[in-house]
Design a protein around this nucleic acid. Sequence first.
DNA 1: AACGTTCGGGCGAACGTTCGCCTAAAGAAT
DNA 2: ATTCTTTAGGCGAACGTTCGCCCGAACGTT
Lengths: 341, 341
Amino acid sequence: MDKKATLKDVAAKSGVSYQTVSKVLNGKANVSAETERAIWQAVEDLDYRTNAAGRNLRTQASRLIGYTWTPAPPWQPNPILDSFLSSTIEAADAAGYHLLLFPTHNTDDETETYRTLARTGRVDGFIVASMDYDDPRVLLLQKLNFPFVAFGRANADWEFPFVDVDGRAGVAAATRHLIEQGHTRLALLAWDGRSRTGDARRNGYFQAMEEAGLSINQDWVIQLPGDVEAGIEATKTLLSLPAPQRPTAVVTVDDQLAIGAMRAAQSAGLLVGPDFGVTGFDDTPGIQHYSPPLTSLRQPLHEIGREIVMRLIALIEGRTIPESIILPPKLVVRGSSLRSQ
Amino acid sequence: MDKKATLKDVAAKSGVSYQTVSKVLNGKANVSAETERAIWQAVEDLDYRTNAAGRNLRTQASRLIGYTWTPAPPWQPNPILDSFLSSTIEAADAAGYHLLLFPTHNTDDETETYRTLARTGRVDGFIVASMDYDDPRVLLLQKLNFPFVAFGRANADWEFPFVDVDGRAGVAAATRHLIEQGHTRLALLAWDGRSRTGDARRNGYFQAMEEAGLSINQDWVIQLPGDVEAGIEATKTLLSLPAPQRPTAVVTVDDQLAIGAMRAAQSAGLLVGPDFGVTGFDDTPGIQHYSPPLTSLRQPLHEIGREIVMRLIALIEGRTIPESIILPPKLVVRGSSLRSQ
DNA sequence: AACGTTCGGGCGAACGTTCGCCTAAAGAAT
DNA sequence: ATTCTTTAGGCGAACGTTCGCCCGAACGTT
C-alpha cells in the first residue's frame, strides 16, 4: 500500500494550518476565495481523502450499519436477500453509511455478537431482521440503549421502531382471490412454532375465510416447517382425505410450501390451477417460470430497505424518527391459482 | 448510547497504567499473576471492549473487507449470493475481519468507489467479483498497490491472486453427459459479449464435442443475453430448423438460459429429458423443483469463499499467499438431461 | 562491594481527525 | 482618533489505542 496524504500534507502544500484545511473540507470555514482554491487544488494534487479511522475516532461514530441474516441451506433460494441488501446498501450509501455484515454464530449466545459490535463502536446501529417473540436482541439493544430498527415486530406490548409487512392482509388477499376463483374448500399450510410473522399470515387465512362465511375444517390447517418436503407431505395428507372433505385449493405462508403443494398435487394427477389452486408468499425470484407459474405475495423490498435505513440513520444521528410503518405486500396472480388458464 | 469504558477506566480500577492494561489484553505483558487477575477482573466488571476506532487509527487497519456485486433484477434469482456471502463472512469472522458491502454506482466511473474506500482506509482489501477482460478495478488496485483477491480471472497475461471455477471443465462435463445419454446433435446457448467466464464455458462445449468426434453446426451455437426470455427465443429458433439439423439437446452456460430452453421445448410439445436434453450452470437454488428438475453445474461456493478470504487476509497481513486456484464445479444430474426417467 | 540480569510496569509519543476558542488585521462606525 | 465588528485563520486539545523505550527494585554472581 502506498502511504496516503493527510491533512498535514495538504496544509503544507497550500500554506495554511491543517485545522483550517479540515474546516474547508467540511464547509465550516471562513476563508478567502483564494485560500480555498489553493486548498482544493492541493487536495486534488495529492488525491487526499479523509482518513476514516481518524474521523471515526474523533467523531465517535463508525458510519457503519450492522446486519446479519440466517443463511438458507444451499438448495433453498433466499427470496429476499439480493433485493433487500441492494436497496439497503443504496439507501445507506446515500446517507454516507455502509453496511457491515456479520455472521450468526448459532453455537453460543446469539446476542454476544451484537453486544461486541455495539460496545466496540464497530457499528453505529443495527438492522434486526428475522424477528421473533421475546427476541433477545431487542432486549439487549434496548438495555444498551443502542440504535436499531427491526424488520418485523415482536411481542405486542414491546415498543421499538420497525418496518413490517402486513402478512395478514397479504394472506387474506390470497385467500380471497382463491375464493373468487370459486374455491370453497381451502386448506392452509402454515409454519409450526410460534412467530409473529407466522401468526399474522395464518390469521389472514382465518380472517378471509370468516369474511366469506366459509367454514374451516380442522384437518385443513396444517402446521409444519417451511420447506418443500414438508409441503409435499402435508399436501399428500390433504389429498388423501375423503372426497367431500378434500380441499380444492391451498393457501401457504411461503413459496417453499407452495412448491411442495404443487408437486404433491401434480404427483396425484391433478392439474395445478384448474383442479387445485395454490398460492405462496414472497414471490421468490424464479417462481414465474415454474409450471404452472406460482401465484405469490411480493413484499415491497425496495421500499422496506429504504424506510428501515432512513429510520435507523435518523435514530443514530439523534433526529426525530418517523413512525413505524406496516407495508402491504402485493398479490401477484399467476397460473397456479387460476381456474381457467 | 451509554458511554463505554476505556483502557483508562480499566487501569484506574485495577491500579496500573492504561498502557499496561493494553499490553495484558494483547498478551504482550510482563506482569505478575496478581496484577493480571486484577486487570481481567476490572475488564469484566466494566464490560470493557477495545474501541475499534482507536485501534484502527493506531494500527492503520480497519479489519474490514470490501465486497460488492451487481444485483440481479428482482425477478431473477441470484444463484450464488446467499451461499457465497455466508461462507465469506464466516471465514472473515474467524480471522477477526468483517465484510463491508458497498453499492455499484453504474452511473459514474465504477472504480471511484473502490478508490475512495481504499484511500480513506475504510477497508483493508477487496474481494473483486464479476471479473471481466480489461477489468478497470484490477488496474486501479494494482496501481494503488492495494490488496485484493479476485473471484474469476481477466486477461490471460495479467497476474494477480484469484480463485476461479473451471467453467470449461464444467460445461465439458455437461456436454459429455448429454453425449453419453445418446445425443449427437447438441446446441449451445452462450452469452454474447466477451468475458473470460463466458469464453471458458463456451470452450467446454467445443472441447467435449471435438473429443467425441461430433461435428458442430454453425446454427447450433447461439450467443445471447443470459436471461430466460432470450433462452426461449433462441430455443424456438433451434426447434424450427429442418428435422435433420434440429438439435436434440442444448447445453447452456447459465440456469436462466436453461429454464428458457426447457420452456420453449415444452411449448413445442417436447418432453424435456427424454425428447430434449437440457443442462444449466450454477445449480441455482430451487431448480431441483422445476419440472423436470434441471441438471446443472454447482460451484463449490463454500470453498471458494474460504479460499478467497484466506488469501486476502494473508495479503493484507503481509504473509505469503498461497497460489491461485481453479476449482472444479460439480455436475448435478437431474431429469432435464436424462433420456429415461 | 560492585556488577549484571531479570522482572514488573511506567511513560511519552503518535496514529489523523474535529471542535471550540483565540487573535491579528482590516474596515466601519462613532 | 478611538472603539467596535467582522474577516481570516491559528492553536491547543481530545478521541482511544499500541508501541518502543525507560527505569527502579530485587536477585544472584564474581
